[in-house]
């Protein structure tokens, strides 16, 4: 059986509503685990996970160290920690912020790229800085796939613009089309060959 890999979503300014849009549209039997890195203030609590849980059929958690990655579960990077992955597990660190961010999308994506190789899918959504651009490029360089929200649908286009520039081969999609695309990639992987190579 082919394993479904992992979907990693990074966002900043405007992220809550964009994430809501995606997570409320994904089916409860989505076959990958999903990692969410959303910039937020270092003392924010697990409210983000709670808000997202209210509108999603997936199981949403604020990640804890050594959580096992399970299909159709969503792991939100906690405030003030970096989220890394090691094969099937979450690994948190308090390493220094990377380019002013902790959690950093680049750091999480890089780790996802190295752990999951071609089974990694990175998604960059709205945001007001360029975090995620390096990480997405790394996912693609190691054989994974990249999706960037169309800057035209993004509340803040800076982050998707930067990701697009760093990864010309990433698919650019309007926000509302991203969930269906993810379902096709993950739940019907036979159809995802076209981007290989």
């Amino acid at each position: 059986m082919t394993t479904p890999g992992v979907v990693a979503i990074g966002t900043s300014w405007g992220g809550l509503s964009a994430l809501g849009r995606i997570l409320s549209s994904l089916p409860g039997d989505f076959r990958s685990p999903i990692i969410v890195v959303q910039h937020r203030s270092k003392d924010s609590d697990n409210l983000l996970a709670k808000l997202l849980q209210d509108i999603s059929d997936l199981k949403i958690h604020e990640a804890e160290d050594k959580d096992t990655l399970l299909p159709s579960h969503v792991y939100v990077a906690p405030a003030d920690y970096h989220l890394l992955v090691d094969a099937g597990e979450v690994s948190l660190t308090v390493d220094a912020p990377f380019r002013y961010s902790r959690p950093s999308i680049d750091v999480a994506f890089e780790s996802v790229a190295r752990s999951f190789g071609s089974a990694a899918i990175g998604v960059v959504l709205t945001g007001a800085n360029d975090d995620g651009a390096r990480g997405l490029a790394r996912i693609i360089a190691l054989g994974g796939q990249g999706i960037v929200e169309d800057p035209k649908t993004a509340e803040m286009p800076v982050m998707p613009e930067a990701a697009k520039r760093a990864s010309p081969s990433a698919e650019v999609l309007p926000l509302q089309d991203i969930p269906a695309r993810l379902v096709r990639m993950v739940n019907a992987p036979g159809q995802m060959k076209r981007k290989a190579g």
């Binding site: 394993t3 096992t68 990655l69 399970l70 299909p71 099937g88």
Partner: peptide, 8 residues
Amino acid sequence: QIETVRPK
């Protein structure tokens, strides 16, 4: 069946 997700 709950399966752990591992890299391919």
